[in-house]
Computed example of a mutant assay.
Amino acid sequence: MTVLLLLLLAAAVGGAVCVVWAERGGPRWVRIVASVTLGIGRAVRGADKSRRRGVKGSGNGDGGE
């Protein structure tokens, strides 16, 4: 389990490095990795927003306050 978490952390850090490097004009493979990283980030944020919207819409009727 620890190895899996370390690999996930390494992938996240590597993706972030590629995003910064791509902004500064890195090679083609860096721009591809950066695009994938940003796409995954958008997908995660979109899923989080839709999940929050679903929870908010199924409230107990007190108006959320």
Rank of each mutant, 00 (worst) to 15 (best):
I32V: 13
G14A: 04
R52G: 02
R53L: 00
G14K: 02
L5T: 01
G63C: 10
L4H: 06
G54M: 02
S35H: 07
T37P: 10
G54V: 01
K49F: 13
V3M: 07
G15T: 11
S50Y: 00
S50W: 03
S58D: 02
G14C: 01
G15H: 06
E65T: 07
N60C: 10
D62Y: 14
V30P: 04
V13L: 11
A34W: 08
V17G: 01
V3P: 01
V55A: 03
A47N: 12
R45Y: 10
N60E: 12
A11Q: 14
E65V: 07
V17P: 01
L6T: 04
V13M: 04
S58C: 06
E23K: 11
L7S: 12
S58M: 05
G64H: 14
I32F: 09
A10Y: 09
M1I: 05
L8F: 09
R28G: 13
T37R: 04
V3E: 08
R31C: 09
V19I: 15
E23A: 05
A16E: 15
K56E: 05
S58V: 03
L7Y: 11
G59Q: 10
N60K: 10
V33C: 14
G15C: 04
R45Q: 14
L4A: 14
R31H: 09
E23T: 03
G41N: 04
R28F: 15
W29R: 12
G54F: 00
I32R: 13
A43K: 02
L5C: 06
V20S: 09
L38S: 08
L4E: 05
A16I: 15
V44Q: 00
A11M: 10
I40A: 08
L6P: 00
C18F: 10
G54H: 00
R31I: 03
L5W: 05
R31K: 13
V20G: 03
T2M: 07
K56P: 00
V33N: 13
L8C: 10
R45W: 10
A10S: 14
R28C: 08
L38R: 15
T2V: 02
V33Q: 11
G14E: 01
G61P: 06
V20L: 08
G59V: 08
R31S: 11
K56G: 00
L6W: 11
E23G: 07
G46C: 05
A22Q: 05
S35Y: 03
W29Q: 09
V20Q: 08
V44A: 05
A43W: 01
N60P: 05
V13D: 01
G59N: 15
A11V: 15
R28V: 14
V3K: 12
G57N: 14
G39C: 03
V30C: 14
A10G: 12
V36H: 06
G26N: 00
D62C: 12
V55C: 00
A22N: 06
G39N: 03
A12D: 04
S58N: 08
L9N: 07
C18L: 10
R53A: 00
M1D: 12
S58E: 02
N60D: 15
G46M: 09
R42T: 11
G41W: 07
C18T: 08
D62L: 15
G61S: 10
D48P: 03
L9A: 13
